[in-house]
């Protein structure tokens, strides 16, 4: 797949001198969905704003569809749609006028059929003649999405599109994203919901403190999470693992109250049946059995907090 967004050594220092992006490299392939995860203040919005031309880079370069976003801004920006994190809309404008305005601003000739399709898809058609101030927060977010889609972008940036949105709209959103992907649109979204990234992304990037910590195929990340742990809680704590059970996949919990067994969910035999039989044979009495899977969330939290320790 050809590259559609190419961010090279991008740095951004705000006026106060604060460096929000510390040399970001990010290559995005045409047609993929990339989810950017990162804590508050990580630099997600700054990265998107710099690619879209809302903030100027301190150094580094960004190309969209092979066009430099500064030197060849017209060609680059014509390809980009942006749904910002903040709900910025003119309160007294009518829904369909503001959506048509966006299309015109991007130099595209009027296309009422397309606008209708987008508004219907986002369940805004009934509200097309309402003023923005009469809409609920979730509807306003949908208007922002309609505006971004109105000019048929090839690359769509969604900055926390599902923040403050109900479950139903979140599903609708995912569906729209999937449909756009079928049409070949490249989508970059930021989110705090890890299950969202799991549900729709092809690749997942993690950013913290202005640096990209990891960008990986979702499936590979998931494979890393294939490991599962089984905790066998004992009714009586023991001091050490009985010799008959000893193996390198089994360890004793710190206080001796449980045995912890790790196994691969994808392997043919997990060895659980044998373990439980051996435990019984060793004369240990079970209190309870718990399984745990390390999630994307754990990986994420580990990554983000790796550098935190003093």
């Amino acid at each position: 797949m050809p590259l559609i967004v190419d961010v090279v050594a991008l740095r951004k220092a705000y006026a106060g001198g604060f460096e929000a992006l510390k040399g970001v490299d990010l290559q995005i392939e045409e047609g993929e969905i990339l989810a950017l995860l990162g804590p508050n203040g990580a630099g997600k919005t700054t990265l998107i704003s710099t690619v879209c031309g809302i903030t100027t880079a301190t150094s580094g370069s960004v190309k969209v569809g092979g066009h430099d976003t500064v030197k060849d801004f017209r060609a680059a920006r014509s390809m980009i749609g942006l749904v910002p994190q903040e709900i910025n809309l003119e309160p007294f404008e009518k829904v369909q006028n503001t959506v048509k305005f966006s299309r015109g601003l991007f130099g595209k000739s009027a296309n009422p059929a397309l606008i209708e399709k987008i508004l219907r898809q986002l369940s805004l058609w009934d509200k097309r003649d309402s003023q923005i101030r009469e809409l609920s927060g979730g509807m306003k977010r949908r208007v922002l999405i309609a505006k971004a889609l109105s000019h048929e972008p090839r690359v769509l940036f969604l900055d926390e599109p599902t923040a403050g949105v109900d479950v139903e709209l979140r599903r609708d959103m995912w569906e729209i994203v999937a449909e756009l992907k079928r049409d070949g649109v490249t989508i970059i979204l930021t989110t705090h919901y890890i299950e969202e990234a799991e549900a729709i992304a092809d690749r997942i990037g993690v950013i913290a403190q202005g640096e990209i910590l990891l960008v990986e195929e979702k499936s590979k990340l998931m494979a890393r999470m294939g490991k599962k742990e089984l905790e066998v809680q004992l009714s009586e704590p023991i001091l050490e693992i009985p010799a008959s059970l000893a193996s390198d996949t089994l360890r004793l919990k710190g206080d001796g109250s449980a045995l912890i067994y790790s196994y691969d969910t994808k392997s043919e035999r997990t060895g659980i049946t044998k373990l439980l039989a051996d435990v019984a044979a060793a004369g240990l009495v079970l209190r309870d059995v718990v399984t745990r899977q390390s999630s994307l969330e754990d990986i994420f939290v580990d990554l983000v907090h790796e550098g935190d320790a003093p």
């Binding site: 704003s49 879209c52 031309g53 809302i54 801004f73 017209r74 060609a75 680059a76 920006r77 014509s78 980009i80 942006l82 910002p84 903040e86 910025n88 809309l89 003119e90 309160p91 966006s102 601003l105 991007f106 130099g107 505006k147």
Partner: peptide, 18 residues
């Protein structure tokens, strides 16, 4: 001033206009 104030200026800045 109004788009600057309510934030809708983002759209002008990210549009292919000079």
């Amino acid at each position: 001033y109004f788009p600057k104030f309510i934030g809708t200026i983002f759209e002008l800045l990210s549009a292919p206009v000079n």
